[in-house]
């Protein structure tokens, strides 16, 4: 703003627009962010110019390599895809059933025992720090190769997410009805089924569908460590460098996930 300097050419005392302390903390934060970025860039060799060069690759891949896919491979893909879907379906179902009681234990307005509540919270937090691939490796190690390990891994993985989301909903319910049921002599189960459940049912259904979406995507990874599903054939075809088969898998996967997301979003939109 050059004009303001003309109006007041010799300011006696500078009045900063931003107070000094705030300026300092903002400046320091920005500096930390930038320094960490520079360190990360050197560690990963992802320099900005290389990133700019890198992104058109996706475009070129879609235009040059993805088409034409090998349609004769479609049957095999469909089989694996069904397995992936089933794994996601069963794991989401189990997770929805197990996460519900856990989320009541992880809600401070139901579980009045502070220590037990904190224990369950910490347990769920711990569960959510384990990436799905490590869970899959663990279950493959114990149960062996196959869809069952995948289902178990995804179940544990989604319990962490689902129980957290539901317990937050439970903690946000209108406390009035719970008080009324307690006042009329209802026990904790009756408080839950009459006071809490009717209030959280739409969100419960919505979050379960959301977890189903996540599980379909997550189950792609599992096949790489032998836990079944479409990742298995993806890994095979990649190591054989059969890129036309890989592109068939990618196209089919993309369409399936898009359709599932679309349906699930519609259903969730109607639930709320």
């Amino acid at each position: 703003m050059p004009n303001s300097e003309n109006i007041n050419p010799t300011p006696r005392k500078r009045h900063p627009v931003t107070p000094k302390g705030l300026k300092w903390s903002l400046g320091t934060s920005l500096l930390i962010v930038i320094v960490l970025y520079i360190l990360s860039v050197y560690q990963t060799t992802a320099f900005p110019n290389r990133v700019v060069d890198g992104f058109p690759i996706i475009f070129n891949f879609v235009v040059d390599d993805l088409w034409p896919p090998n349609w004769s491979y479609f049957d095999r893909v469909a089989m694996s895809l069904l397995e992936t879907w089933n794994m996601a379906l069963f794991s989401s179902t189990f997770a929805a059933l197990i996460a519900l009681p856990m989320s009541f234990l992880a809600a401070s307005n139901i579980n009045r025992n502070a220590y037990f509540y904190q224990f369950i919270r910490n347990f769920l937090n711990l569960l959510r720090t384990i990436p799905e691939i490590i869970l899959a490796v663990l279950f493959v190690a114990v149960v062996g190769i196959g869809a069952v390990s995948g289902i178990l891994a995804l179940t544990v993985f989604s319990i962490g997410i689902l129980a957290k989301l539901i317990s937050e909903t439970v903690e946000a319910v209108d406390p009035g009805p719970l008080e009324a049921i307690r006042a009329s002599g209802g026990n904790v189960f009756q408080v839950i089924s009459f006071g809490v459940m009717p209030q959280i049912l739409p969100q419960y259904a919505s979050y379960s569908l959301y977890v189903l979406e996540i599980n379909v995507k997550a189950s792609v990874v599992l096949g790489f460590v032998g836990a079944g599903g479409i990742g298995l054939i993806l890994n095979q075809q990649l190591s054989l460098f059969n890129y036309d088969n890989v592109s068939t898998i990618i196209i089919v996967l993309f369409l399936t996930i898009t359709i599932i997301d679309l349906i699930s979003n519609r259903l969730r939109g109607r639930l709320e």
Binding site: D174, P177, E179
Partner: peptide, 14 residues
Amino acid sequence: VGMIFQSYNLVKRM
């Protein structure tokens, strides 16, 4: 001992 509350405390969705 029955109780009546200022904010009714009904489950709204029921």
